[in-house]
């Protein structure tokens, strides 16, 4: 039978606990405070806004119940905007992941000038999105642009990239992939370098060829990195605003209007803050569900080294 702790021990434990608690508050408090003020309070505010007709200039609102939700979900534009968001996310994340893997494998080889190549590939990621968008508007110009000239050499005519609703979304996706490719490549390279060399040697001894080594050593070794990239890329592609705002402003004829751009349009052009709040909630919900699904189903397949 256990003997009850004596008073001395109890006081000591309370002191220790108190000290630990204080350390925790001192270390985590400031960050937590900032989160509450700048993230969670506005987030709660957003939920409240979604039930109001809110005047942004006067900062006054009236409660309208579910009207904003009905308006947003019954709008003839919503289906198109959701589809655009889906296509943009799948294509841009898929493109970044696949091309990034190719870039990572290539630039992980002991090639001459690979450091320079890595820097060049990474540089678009640190350039302002607006500047990138302006440059690409010139590249896409169907009569004077760089792409027009290249296609002409190949005997092809240039599509009206940003003016034709059938091409505009693809054009924005191309620029998004170009901008984010370097980031994925660098993460892949880090992942590749973390795979122990003796695994490759063992595989080679077992007679594994290039493809077998790729399949059984490289890809499983990269799984945590791929998982990280999928989660972060999907989240950032849902929030890709700068390129769309500068290149197409959601046009032509809504062809590049995604949830995040529609949110901006609703809040700052139509001044309909309540409906913008509903769109923000929908976007949050979508991102939340996608991430939960990834954590539930995708992470199972990941083995951390």
């Amino acid at each position: 039978m256990k003997s009850p702790p004596n008073n001395q021990n109890l006081i000591g434990r309370i002191r220790r606990d108190w000290r630990e608690w204080l350390t925790f508050v001192l270390l985590a408090g400031p960050n937590l405070g900032l989160f509450v003020i700048f993230t969670y309070a506005p987030m709660l505010n957003n939920v409240l806004l979604s039930f109001q007709e809110y005047d942004l200039i006067r900062s006054t609102g009236t409660w309208v119940g579910l009207t904003n939700f009905q308006t947003v979900f019954n709008s003839s534009q919503t289906g198109r905007i959701l589809l655009n968001t889906l296509v943009f996310t799948v294509a841009s994340v898929g493109g970044v992941l696949l091309l990034g893997l190719f870039g990572g494998l290539l630039l992980n080889q002991p090639l001459r000038g690979r450091n320079a190549a890595r820097s060049i590939l990474f540089s678009p990621f640190i350039i302002s999105g607006a500047a990138i968008a302006i440059v690409w508007i010139y590249i896409f110009d169907p009569r004077f642009g760089l792409l027009y000239t290249i296609l002409k050499w190949l005997g092809l005519t240039s599509p009206n990239w940003l003016g034709d609703p059938n091409w505009a979304l693809l054009a924005v996706i191309i620029v998004y992939i170009w901008r984010n490719l370097g980031y994925a490549t660098v993460i892949y390279i880090a992942g590749l370098q973390a795979i122990p060399a003796d695994l490759y040697e063992a595989a080679r001894v077992d007679g594994a060829g290039l493809w077998a080594r790729m399949r059984h050593v490289t890809l499983p070794g990269l799984a945590p990195v791929v998982f990280f990239l999928i989660v972060t890329s999907i989240l950032s592609s849902f929030q890709a605003f700068d390129l769309i705002n500068v290149m197409t402003r959601g046009g032509p004829a809504n062809a590049t209007n995604t949830l995040i751009y529609h949110l901006y349009e609703m809040a700052f052009i139509n001044l309909s803050v309540g409906r913008a709040a509903v769109i923000a909630l929908a976007l949050f919900g979508l991102m939340f569900i996608v991430t939960l699904l990834q954590l539930r189903y995708l992470e199972r397949r990941v083995t951390y080294a």
Binding site: F38, T39, Y40, P42, M43, N45, N46, V47, L48, L49, Q52, E53, Y54, D55, L56, S59, T60, G61, T62, W63, V231, T232, L235, S236, F238, Q239, I260, L263, A267, V273, A276, A277, I279, A280, L281, L283, F284, M287, F288, T291
Partner: peptide, 23 residues
Amino acid sequence: IALGAGAATLAACAPASQRPAPA
């Protein structure tokens, strides 16, 4: 990260201060 990013999106939409009041 997922929660933070989602919350940031929501936060971006909300005005700095809100004083609900009848129109």
